[in-house]
């Protein structure tokens, strides 16, 4: 598989804080990647490094074959949509869309126009007068219509309602199918996007915690529920990601079970339930003492 991005031993230190800590990974050309992790894990810093907006403290970055720093040939093929993009004072929406093609080699005006209709965006309104959701829509439109071979969306939909988010997912998938490109989607709404992702990178405290296909990660964990003693017996000597109990019932999330082990558990009267990508990441990156923490994401 060819790679669009290759990073080796990349470190970024700010005064006293190591935001990115000796990470190495590649991004696969033409795949949609999820860059997931908690607040402050280093996602945005990583994307800033990959788009030449920050200088690395040490390590190597290759984007589309060369260093992205001050490299116009690379950057016109890279689009980075940030959560809090600043626009010039007095810019109207139409000015944003008019200037975007100056920066992106593959910009599609037709696609941008149709997205403006989809998101019902007022072209003549000043950007600073837009609602939070409309501002996010501007970013989403620029990111999609740029058709950049490497596109980053950093938490692109703050304030976008569920309908608009699904419009974004639908347009992204449809356009990606027609014009394959490498996409990196960083978000906290993991359940919403997990089916869109081909590969997943999870970053935790500046380090890469998981780097795999979404399908492989989906199969890595399982929750075992049953009588306390039986569950504990089964969980012994296995890697336990989370543990909860209510009365005599215990629930334990275990990493990696073979088919035989699954049948053993069922035969022992235990119930197995799947762990979604979001639950897996919560368990991997959350505090380990979550003994009685019944997180709301299970209900939602």
């Amino acid at each position: 598989m060819s790679t669009t991005v290759e990073v080796s031993h990349l470190t970024k230190r700010f005064r006293g804080v190591t935001a990115v800590d000796d990470v190495s990974f590649t991004l696969q050309e033409g795949a949609i990647h999820g860059l997931l992790g908690r607040n402050g894990a280093g996602k945005t810093t990583l994307m800033q490094l990959l788009t030449g907006q920050e200088f690395a403290t040490s390590g190597e970055i290759s984007v589309l074959g060369s260093s992205p720093v001050e490299n116009a040939a690379v950057l016109r093929n890279v689009c980075f949509i940030k959560e809090s993009q600043k626009y010039p004072e007095d810019f109207k929406v139409k000015h944003v869309l008019k200037s975007a093609p100056w920066f992106f080699a593959n910009w599609s005006q037709d696609f941008a126009d149709s997205l403006v209709k989809d998101f019902d965006l007022p072209l003549d309104r000043k950007v600073k007068k837009l609602s939070r959701g409309q501002l996010s829509a501007v970013g989403v439109i620029v990111g999609l219509a740029s058709r950049a071979p490497l596109t980053f969306f950093d938490e692109p939909y703050l304030g976008l309602d569920a309908v608009a988010r699904h419009t974004f997912y639908d347009r992204l998938l449809a356009d990606y199918a027609e014009h394959p490109r490498t996409v990196v989607l960083s978000t906290h709404l993991i359940d919403e996007v997990s089916n869109l992702l081909e590969r997943v990178l999870v970053i935790d405290r500046g380090r890469i915690l998981m780097d795999d296909t979404a399908d492989a990660l989906r199969a890595t964990a399982v929750t075992v529920v049953g009588q306390h003693a039986g569950v504990e017996e089964f969980a012994r000597n296995r890697e336990v990601l989370a543990r909860e109990s209510i009365g005599g019932i215990a629930s334990v999330t275990i990493a990696g079970l073979t088919d035989t082990e699954r049948s053993q558990a069922t035969a022992a009267g235990l119930e197995l339930s799947p762990v979604s990508l979001q639950q897996l990441i919560v368990r991997r990156t959350g505090p380990m003492d979550a003994t009685t923490e019944h997180t709301k994401e299970n209900v939602a």
Partner: peptide, 10 residues
């Protein structure tokens, strides 16, 4: 992919 809202590779 569009119908199920999933990645075309999947």
């Amino acid at each position: 992919a569009a119908f199920h809202r999933i990645n075309p590779a999947t």
